[in-house]
């Protein structure tokens, strides 16, 4: 199942040229571009691992692409997302965030039904990948 989260997620995956254009836009706006990766793409998992520090002092998107390449080399079997943080007053939040890498095979999620007190039924979605230990989820 193809995970869709962040911007452009219903489009075909962005090519490196597309990413370059987006990053350049963000840099020109003065946003700090950040790379994060995870092997637990649950939508409620907001704590992805950071790849290095946010990059806010670059002039050209190519520098970000270099980092992305390095990150893919090491974490190519995980989800990598790129986000751009706007620190200007009144915003102070992430302005754009999109996936730039996904594992070769995406396991997807299953729906779990949990019987509650009485006849209540609770639901949760759980990634199939999470059944395997961390680090071995998308191999």
């Amino acid at each position: 199942m193809r995970v869709t989260q962040g911007c452009f997620s219903f489009l075909p995956d962005l090519t490196d040229d597309d990413i370059l254009t987006q990053v350049q836009y963000a840099l020109e706006k003065g946003w700090a571009v950040n790379l994060e990766f995870t092997d637990d793409p649950h939508p409620r998992n907001t704590y992805w691992e950071m790849w290095g520090l946010p990059m806010f002092d670059l002039h050209d998107a190519k520098g970000v692409l270099m980092e992305l390449e390095a990150c893919r080399k090491l974490h190519g079997d995980k989800y990598i997302r790129l986000s751009a943080f706007d620190s200007s007053h009144g915003w102070e939040s992430v302005r754009i965030s999109f996936l730039v890498n996904r594992p070769p095979h995406e396991d997807g999620f299953r729906l779990e039904r949990i019987a509650g007190p009485g006849r209540t039924q609770r639901y949760e979605i759980r990634g199939y990948g999470l059944d395997r230990p961390e680090g071995a989820r998308y191999r």
């Binding site: 990059m55 002092d57 670059l58 002039h59 050209d60 998107a61 190519k62 520098g63 970000v64 270099m66 980092e67």
Partner: peptide, 11 residues
């Protein structure tokens, strides 16, 4: 070194 190179990209 990589940090500096990243900063210099495009210039």
């Amino acid at each position: 070194t990589k940090e500096v190179l990243k900063k210099a990209m495009g210039g």
